[in-house]
């Protein structure tokens, strides 16, 4: 097991390097000119002379590999440059907003798992009966409604009509409910479907047959053997959900005026504030990759077949 963890951790370095190269190339090969944005956001008229000075100042006149090496060297020391707008260090600004987003995403992930588990299980146990049909109807609805519309439907029902929940800003738990539901409904429905399909498959698995042969009641077979084994693939799905949740967070933060990093990034993109954009995508991807790594390790820990396969190679 420690060997497996080390191997996976070692893979993280080339992955993040590849990500940073890609981000750097997309930025530099795009049509935008950072020097132009820099001048515009600093309220300097973009004369040829000013542009040349700005390019020199930002190091844009050097060859691409040199620029990349320089940038990477600083990034490793956690220096991502300064925002063109506020002139503050980018990392500080992002770290200021990031916790708000992580709280929201964490709560949404919790909601996804806490709700999809009973829904999926009930749906499988009561297959083709009313509860199953209700759950399937809900999941069909949930995967088809876009989050940026769902958010407003929720605001309209729970804030405008019923006046139960606040529609904007950050505060207590009640402020978190609507954005979190907006973010999690889709992954929740996908998860419920996944659990249901896994359980229906496992009901006929050999270990379930063996448990029945030992004389266990159907309830014990379902609860202890079928359900638990059906949760293993869900762990992998969680890794994927995190990526979806980050995308959903940007939308939910915009709808509900949640002071998170997504909303900050959208305004940076409007302004073409390149250092912020760059740092934002790197940090979000790094978190996403790390989460997936954690998921893989957890998976290997739970299911020895995975890590043994890795070691035998």
């Amino acid at each position: 097991m420690p060997l497996y963890v080390l191997k996976r951790l070692a893979l993280l370095v080339p992955m993040l390097l590849a990500v940073s190269v890609t981000v750097f190339l997309i930025l530099r090969l795009g049509q935008g000119d950072p020097a132009m944005s820099y001048l515009r956001l600093s309220n300097i008229p973009p004369t040829d002379e000013a542009l040349a000075t700005a390019r020199q100042e930002l190091g844009l006149d050097r060859p691409l590999p040199v620029q990349y090496a320089d940038w990477l060297g600083k990034a490793v020391r956690l220096d991502f440059g300064r925002s063109y707008v506020t002139k503050n260090p980018v990392l500080d600004e992002i770290l200021y907003y990031l916790p708000n987003t992580l709280i929201l995403a964490g709560f949404s992930l919790f909601l996804t798992l806490a709700v999809s588990l009973p829904l999926g299980a009930i749906s499988a146990v009561e297959k083709d009966k009313l509860p199953d049909q209700l759950v399937r109807g809900l999941s069909f609805f949930g995967v088809s409604i876009p989050n940026f519309f769902l958010g407003f439907v929720l605001v309209w029902i729970f804030s405008v009509k019923l006046r139960w929940l606040p529609s904007m800003g950050m505060g207590g738990l009640d402020h978190m409910i609507l954005p979190a539901v907006t973010m999690s409904l889709m992954s929740l429905c996908i998860n419920a479907r996944l659990i249901r399909a896994n359980m229906l498959e496992n009901i006929h698995a050999r270990f379930a047959l063996y448990a029945r042969a030992r004389g266990l009641s159907e309830r014990a077979v379902t609860g202890r053997h079928v359900l638990v084994n059906s949760l293993i693939p869900v762990i992998t799905a969680v890794g994927m959900h995190v990526g979806e949740l980050f995308g959903g967070a940007v939308v939910a933060e915009s709808i509900f005026s949640w002071p998170g990093v997504g909303r900050y990034a959208v305004s940076a993109i409007y302004n073409r504030d390149y250092p912020v954009m760059q740092c934002f995508i790197l940090i979000m991807t790094a978190i996403f990759v790390t989460m997936n790594l954690a998921v893989d390790i957890l998976y290997a820990w739970i299911d020895p077949r995975i890590r043994l396969q890795g070691e035998s190679k």
Binding site: E244, V250, V266, I281
Partner: peptide, 12 residues
Amino acid sequence: TFPTFILAMFMV
């Protein structure tokens, strides 16, 4: 490796 929507935002 990237979260899809975030990468799409960045590209735009």
